[in-house]
Design a protein around this nucleic acid. Structure first.
Length: 777
DNA sequence: TAGTTTTAAGTTTTT
DNA sequence: CTTAAAACTA
């Protein structure tokens, strides 16, 4: 397809590989795009090119990504080149699945008004089926069910046993699926799995989609799972042009079912595949790439590639060992402050990013940056939608659109507590036609389950509650009445009829409106109505500690967000779907200049002038008990993090770290040893043992002895202490002997620990390797 | 059954 | 240390 047509001007700035990738058509194309090789640019340009030069209808183009951020970015950049690209379908896999199911889910008996369950809801649902299992086990099973769906495995597939070897897994999974079908909602995995099932079962539907989408582009293909691969396969007809872009070295989502094999075996899975490699890195200075590559090249299963740096020059990455996480944070702050001096190299705080492995690590950085008055923003950990009051409000909304939603009902029917206990709830759920919780029913009629929804009334929990009301105790009856009333009010607010009555009533009830929830356009009225009438708002309001006020503020924010959506069921479904699929808060403070605090996983696709990778310690990064494939994934995570840096890369490692409130000694990360010596510059003190690899290799014997719980230091030395010996002490961590002096009680060993402490010990040379007395204590 | 106190456990990573 | 689950009391 390398025809000699005139190259449009917007292609001229691309290198020849990039151009080839944009111009390519015909057979499936796999673009192996190294970090910083301009892959987003290639995809967006390609979309524009296909529309503009090849006459593709924008609506016939489907581009899928893994994150909403990436989807937005892609839409934005493509539209800059070609406005018509706005009509192309640019979505995440999951949002595409939801879109698909709204239109075709009925083929599997799924109502179009389904709500998407998040992981918490999934656990709650499973909990109603496994009444006498521990929370932990339920969570574990829920996780495995999600995994099974990632692998496109159903309860009836024998292979599902490979996911969970406990014999009862398939039965649990099956019951879970049945209940979910009764309720009429879906979980995350269903958003991929169910569309595939429909496409496989209904060839005419598949045909329709194949004729609509002539072009399918997939970004971050290395993070796709088996179900997503199946989806692509089903969507691709003989006339479909498939183009996948990815980098096997950046596959970091194995833990949630991603299959690197998808990209490694792409050519076999899609016969006739052509491969184009983008190996020119435009982002980072050469030394940064060298350091990153030297680590990731320790991995076995990889396609292998050579990144060429278009930016020669630049300094070696800097590695610094810190005593503990507080000094680590101070070190970061110093670096940032220093660079921002009037004649320093940086003018923006946003040039900087601090990377860490787990969200919990952000705390010490936040504290320090706050103290030093350095502006920062924490990416990702904003758990707005996981807050209790928000989840309650969302459950009310969900129940409004789907009165069969048992999970939503259970969550809010007695919130705030109004005398409706477990017994009452179970009765109502039973009355609504749900099987109850008894594990004995052994009917194998799962195939006919879908038909149970024939009569929508039968599973309507609100209706069931109303029916049962007369037979309930006075307390429970009153409670149920309040709940039903709230739902009614919400429903009328949804259709805009209840507005007048609501405001009248509220004004009459309370003169003060200073902390009243206010509503504006669209759905916000409905949100406010529900949380007010249910008493949830009032409950938090009267709880007048700081939390209460914050919660009211959060509810207000939710109402504000809802005002963007049209009142009515349609708008409500859109609102709920948007929240489930995109939990990132639109950061209006994007314009603000701030340092970025971010987990390594979240950095994918981002770049910063200066990056500090922190916490390079065994147990943290890589996380403990990672080995083989999992360790390789951690290594790729290192690669991803390091290659975010454009100009400068800093790496820190602490010798002591506060974990679970206890300070404990840490070992340097194995990855630090994998960086080639000439690829990195170490600044400051080097921990004992680190600079001398041969000695370090013996450390297994240290670890072994470290497991006994004596507070005396131990050593692997073969006889006598001598200067330079490395040792481990339970309280002080790793250290080195820097002096030995004789005394009448025997030799005194002077030890300097990596955490900074210097201690003297009395050694019993003749009998063992133990230190006997802590002289300095 | 609701709210309190005590005890134990635990921090990946995310659509 | 902080949070969630279990145990306990009113």
């Amino acid at each position: 397809m390398a025809d000699e047509r005139i190259i449009p001007p917007y292609l001229e700035t691309l290198n020849s590989e990039q151009q080839k990738a944009v111009l390519h058509l015909g057979n499936p194309l796999l673009i192996l795009a190294g970090a910083g090789s301009g892959k987003t640019r290639v995809i967006t340009t390609k979309i524009a090119y296909l529309i503009r030069e090849r006459g593709y209808d924008p609506r016939s183009i489907l581009a899928v990504t893994f994150t909403n951020k990436a989807a937005r970015e892609m839409a934005h950049r493509a539209a800059l080149i070609e406005p018509r690209a706005g009509d192309a379908m640019l979505r995440t896999f999951h949002s595409f699945g939801a879109w698909f199911l709204r239109r075709n889910g009925h083929l599997l008996g799924l109502p179009s008004g389904f709500v998407i369950y998040d992981d918490d809801d999934t656990v709650s649902l499973l909990a109603t089926l496994m009444t006498d299992s521990s929370k932990q086990e339920i969570k574990s099973r829920a996780h495995l069910i999600a995994r099974a769906k990632d692998y496109f495995l159903s309860p009836d597939d024998p292979e599902t046993d490979l996911i969970d070897h406990r014999g009862d897994f398939r039965r649990i999974y099956k019951r879970y699926e049945e209940r979910l079908a009764q309720i009429g909602n879906v979980d995350f995995g269903d958003l991929i799995k169910k569309p595939v099932e429909i496409l496989k079962q209904f060839p005419e539907v598949a045909e329709r989609f194949r004729s609509r989408f002539k072009v399918i582009l997939v970004d971050e293909y290395q993070d796709s799972n088996i179900a997503q691969f199946e989806l692509l396969k089903e969507l691709c007809g003989s006339g479909t042009y498939l183009c996948a872009v990815g980098d096997d070295d950046q596959s970091i989502y194995r833990f949630r079912g991603a299959e690197v094999r998808n990209i490694l075996q792409f050519p076999e899975l899609f016969p006739g595949t052509e491969i184009i490699r983008l190996e020119e890195n435009y982002r980072s200075f050469l030394p940064i790439l060298n350091a990153a590559s030297s680590v990731v090249s320790c991995n076995k299963g990889r396609l292998g590639k050579t990144l060429r740096a278009s930016r020669q020059g630049g300094d070696l990455p800097v590695l610094t060992f810190m005593p503990n996480q507080d000094t680590e944070a101070a070190f970061c702050a110093d670096l940032i402050k220093e660079s921002m001096k009037p004649n320093g190299p940086c003018r923006n705080y946003s040039d900087w990013a601090i990377l860490y492995r787990t969200n919990a690590q952000s705390l010490s950085f936040e504290t320090e940056l706050l103290r030093r008055k350095i502006p920062y923003k924490v990416v990702g950990s904003l758990k707005f939608y996981e807050r209790e009051e928000i989840k309650d409000a969302l459950a009310l909304l969900s129940f409004l659109v789907n009165p069969k939603d048992e999970i939503a009902f259970r969550r809010v029917v007695n919130k705030p507590t109004r005398g409706v206990g477990a017994a009452t709830i179970d009765r109502i759920v039973m009355e609504a036609g749900f099987g109850g919780t008894d594990d004995q029913d052994d009917n194998h009629q799962g195939d006919f389950l879908l038909q149970e929804n024939d009569n929508p009334e039968s599973a309507d929990i609100a209706a069931a509650a109303r029916r049962l009301m007369p037979s309930l105790s006075a307390k429970a009856r009153a409670g149920i009445a309040v709940f039903l009333k709230a739902i009614e009010s919400g429903r009328s607010a949804l259709t805009q009829n209840g507005e007048a009555a609501f405001s009248e009533k509220k004004k009459a009830e309370r003169g003060d409106k200073k902390d009243d929830l206010r509503f504006g356009e669209g759905l916000s009225r409905c949100v406010v109505m529900l949380v007010e009438e249910s008493g949830i708002a009032e409950y938090h309001r009267s709880n007048d500690d700081i939390n209460g006020a914050q919660r009211i503020a959060n509810l207000q924010e939710l109402a504000n967000a809802a005002s963007e959506y049209e009142a009515g069921t349609e708008g409500l479904l859109e609102f709920l779907e948007h929240i489930e699929l995109d939990r990132s808060i639109e950061q209006s403070e994007d314009s603000e200049d701030a340092v970025t605090l971010i987990t390594l996983h979240n950095t994918k696709g981002l770049e910063f002038r200066r990056v500090i990778m922190t916490g390079l310690e065994q147990g943290i990064f890589p996380r403990e008990d990672k080995k083989d494939e999992d360790l390789e994934e951690e290594r790729r995570l290192f690669y991803v993090g390091a290659t975010r840096a454009m100009d400068e890369l800093y790496i820190t490692s602490c010798s002591m770290r506060r974990l679970f409130g206890r300070t404990q000694p840490m070992e340097p990360s194995v990855f630090l040893r994998e960086i080639s010596k000439d690829c990195i510059r170490v600044i400051g003190d080097v921990p004992y043992g680190f600079a001398v690899p041969s000695r370090y290799k013996n450390r297994s014997s240290f670890s072994a002895s470290a497991e006994s719980s004596s507070s005396k230091p131990k050593v692997s030395s073969d006889g006598r202490w001598k200067v330079g010996d490395t040792l481990f002490h339970d309280d002080y961590g790793y250290g080195g002997v820097y002096d030995i002096r004789e005394s009448e009680e025997g030799p005194i060993v002077y030890v300097r620990f990596n955490g900074g402490a210097e201690k003297r010990f009395l050694s019993e040379f003749q009998s063992s390797n133990y230190m006997k007395t802590d002289y300095s204590g």
